[in-house]
Design a protein around this nucleic acid. Structure first.
Length: 811
DNA sequence: CTAGGGTTAG
């Protein structure tokens, strides 16, 4: 039996309500107190009072500390205080935990945590993380602290797991023994931790728990830790917290636990779903050993390629997998056929499909459907129908999707699709509105307007009115018949689904002609009339479209309309407006917009400042004052601007500032610097900079070489460009042609012009101007074969020549 | 409904 210093104990005696429950570890001094004090009596006595407990915190902790040799006593003491309904402080719990821990009473510790977890943050008045921190803080020795926290974490893991079990036990009405196994508990705990409702709260705890566990090798065995990590990583991936997932993966590797294929594929798929395809592929390159690649990972890789639009790379990759005898399943094959189809190589797609079958992989309905779509796309409708028949024969009856693809495909190829509809009915697959939509849209694309309208009419009687107008409009858009799409659309006096507006609107905004943009605006106004709230991005798109065609006045007028409707344009919209004003040298206008956006609470970001810095490097002060951080793009502009203004010193100061800020230059920055040095006649420095960028493993791009060629045409960079795989573009050719004319090599200039043509690079106004000027300079009268280009482009030609003539007159 | 920024040419 222990003796307590009486003065300290008297401070807490009022907290005790009941006699001790544990006979073995009874506390005499506490046991003899009155166990039936009511709340009012306590208050009268002044003994029980939460405030007085707070005041007595120090003493209270000293009592606990004095119990450090008797963990059971400390526990029952704590329990009694809790039993009273008081809220012991986080420090009090931490003190008890340290005592229990130092006696290695893991079970007791877990039990204590179970109680704490059930109370919840509210009931406790502090979070579990706070508690862990408090436990750790008291131990100054780092190593001991780690061990302590490891043990505590381990107990906490078990406690969480037990709480889970408890809930489950209730659900199962107790008729089944809950199996007690650590690994299951841990797994359950972690999966719960990472489940969405708890994630905000416990995601961090998962880390606090996992790290010390790993470092002290506390978890019962490797497989538990592996399971825990896999859970964490997969959970994080599901929540799209990929950076955290990757850092957990690094941790895992440090523990020398091999992540399995599931972990890798979770990360890859996470990136892919996030549309970060190149990140996904880089991850594969950096982390995933080739031998671990399974069909799941392989199909993710292939799909990433396809989603990036790199179909031929996807197919090559597939072939590579196959050559390396990596197991491929029907998902992988499906992506591969699809890639071939997108490349228009339908024959090869069909061959691959047959190969898959020979390999013993039975095609599923999806595989067939992909191929049917491919056949239809190439106008090979009979083969598509043959595939449907094959499906039936092979006992894989086509589903609604397969039929829809076929029906839509037939309609698109001006084949009779209505037969398919009746075949579907006969096979017991009822056409849905999706089927009708696909057929109607297909008919429009095929130019069968009347037929589409007739089908729509006949369906309208059964369905809601105008049900398929959306497909008609989309069909027109797809066929590039924007005016007809608009005419058909504007007749409709009831709201359509938003995506129809969006499709038409986007097509109209992307068009070259101004009258299409006018129509896009009318469409927006029509939405307002019909009470359909446009998606916010549409406003910015429209303004962007007006800016693109250089009609700032229209853009400004629309901005006024928005103002009258109390719609605040967003950051993008303002930035694009300001950029256009700057481009057209309407600097006051740009400034007015800049002030307006600030007044209306739209905070400019580094992009906005970059746009402004092109004309006004002084904006820098304002940017810094607003706390906006510069980046490489911004610095490139600044440096360029200063060099243009012949303020070399200021430009160099910016370079210094950038270095201090730890901003790493990139290719464009180096290129800008090289160009600037040449302009200032620092030829040596310019060339040295070029060498330096290569030394630092920045691969020069076509712009860099254009700059070099422009300033130093004697440099022979052909081989280097080829080695880097850099393709010449219009700018590069223009400079090259210009140079050849200049040194009188007219034939060479012509040869290069021809080369440009055959390599599919389109000359533009500047290029033509250089050529015409070159010919004139060398005493030739230029002759152009206007028949050379395809009929579709012919309409553009007079415009270009007109502009060339104009610019020649100017120069 | 990923819309906006930097470097190059006559």
């Amino acid at each position: 039996m222990r003796v307590f210093p009486i003065p300290l104990l008297s401070r807490v005696r009022g907290l005790v309500r009941r006699a001790p429950t544990s006979r073995m570890y009874a506390v005499p001094a506490l046991a003899c107190t009155n166990s039936t004090i009511s709340h009012s009596e306590q208050s009268k006595e002044g003994n029980f009072d939460v405030n007085s407990l707070e005041l007595n915190e120090v003493g209270f902790l000293r009592v606990l500390t004095s119990m450090r040799d008797d963990p059971y006593l400390a526990l029952s003491f704590l329990k009694r205080i809790e039993g009273n309904g008081a809220l012991p402080s986080v420090q009090a719990y931490a003190a008890v935990i340290r005592i229990v821990c130092s006696w290695s009473l893991d079970e007791k510790l877990s039990h204590l945590f179970v109680g704490l977890i059930r109370k919840g943050d509210e009931g406790r008045g502090f979070s579990v993380v706070d508690l862990l921190k408090a436990v750790g803080e008291a131990e100054e020795n780092e190593k001991l602290c780690f061990l302590l926290l490891s043990r505590v974490s381990s107990a906490l893991v078990k406690a969480y797991a037990k709480v889970e079990m408890f809930e489950e036990a209730i659900v199962l009405s107790g008729d089944r023994e809950v199996k007690e196994g650590d690994s299951q508990e841990v797994e359950k705990f972690l999966s719960k931790l990472l489940s969405s409702e708890m994630r905000r709260h416990h995601g961090f705890e998962a880390y606090i728990l996992l790290r010390p566990l790993r470092d002290a090798n506390i978890l019962v065995d490797e497989s538990d830790l592996a399971v825990a990590y896999r859970r964490v990583i997969r959970g994080l991936c599901n929540e799209m917290k990929l950076e955290e997932a990757e850092s957990a993966l690094l941790d895992m590797e440090k523990c020398v636990i091999d992540p399995d294929a599931c972990v890798y594929s979770a990360v890859i798929e996470g990136h892919r779903k996030n549309m970060s395809f190149s990140k996904a592929l880089r991850f594969v390159n950096d982390k995933v050993s080739q031998r671990i690649i399974n069909p799941v990972i392989a199909s993710s890789i292939l799909q990433c390629c396809c989603q990036m639009g790199k179909f031929s790379e996807a197919y090559d990759q597939f072939i590579d997998f196959r050559n390396r005898n990596i197991t491929l399943d029907r998902f992988c094959y499906n992506v591969a056929f699809d890639a071939l189809i997108k490349l228009g190589r339908v024959d090869e797609a069909i061959e691959l499909f047959r190969e898959m079958t020979r390999e013993g992989i039975a095609p599923d309905v999806v595989n067939y459907t992909t191929l049917i779509g491919g056949c239809c796309q190439q106008g090979r409708c009979e083969e598509a129908i043959d595939l449907i028949i094959e499906m039936e024969n092979k006992g894989k009856p086509p589903d609604i999707v397969a039929y829809n693809v076929l029906a839509g495909g037939l309609a698109r190829n001006a084949e009779n699709a209505s037969d398919i509809l009746s075949i579907m009915e006969a096979r017991g697959v009822k056409p849905t509105s999706v089927t009708h939509n696909m057929v109607i849209q297909g008919l429009i694309v095929a130019g069968k307007i009347e037929e589409a309208e007739a089908l729509n009419q006949s369906l309208e009687e059964h369905n809601k009115p105008g049900g398929h107008v959306a497909s008609i409009v989309k069909g027109y858009c797809e066929a590039g018949r924007l005016d007809e799409a608009f005419e058909r659309f504007i007749r409709i006096d009831f709201p359509l689904p938003k995506n129809v507006y969006f499709t038409l609107f986007t097509s109209l905004c992307c068009a070259k002609d101004k009258h299409h943009i006018d129509k896009a605006q009318k469409l927006l106004e029509r939405m307002w009339e019909l009470g359909v709230e446009p998606v916010k991005s549409m406003y910015g798109k429209l303004i962007g479209a007006w800016c693109r065609v250089g009609n700032v006045r229209k853009a400004m007028r629309f901005l006024e309309v928005l103002k009258s409707r109390e719609i605040v344009p967003d950051l993008f919209t303002y930035t694009i407006m300001i950029k256009t004003c700057c481009r057209l040298n309407e600097l006051e206008q740009a400034d007015a917009l800049f002030r307006d956006m600030k007044e209306r609470g739209v905070k400019p970001d580094v992009v906005t400042y970059t746009v402004l810095a092109k004309n006004n490097p002084k904006i820098d002060e304002d940017m810094k004052a607003c706390g906006v951080k510069p980046d490489v793009f911004y610095y490139t502009t600044m440096i360029n601007t200063y060099y243009r203004l012949n303020e070399e010193k200021k430009a160099l100061a910016v370079v210094q500032e950038m270095k201090r800020g730890g901003i790493v230059p990139d290719v464009a920055m180096y290129t800008a610097l090289i160009d600037s040095y040449y302009r200032l006649n620092n030829r040596k420095i310019a060339y040295d900079t070029f060498q330096e960028m290569k030394r630092r493993r920045f691969c020069p791009d076509v712009v860099t070489y254009t700059v070099l060629l422009n300033h130093d045409p004697k440099l022979d960079l052909k081989r280097e460009m080829r080695a880097f795989g850099i393709k010449r573009d219009v700018h590069y050719y223009t400079v090259l042609i210009h140079h050849k004319f200049k040194i009188g090599e007219v034939e060479e200039a012509e040869r290069i012009f021809h080369e440009m043509f055959v390599s599919g690079v389109e000359p533009d106004v500047v290029c033509y101007t250089a050529i015409i000027a070159g010919f004139l300079r060398n005493g030739y009268v230029p002759k152009f074969n206007t028949k050379r280009r395809s009929s579709r482009r012919r309409s553009k030609k007079p415009i270009i020549l007109g502009e060339v003539q104009r610019s020649l007159l100017i120069s």
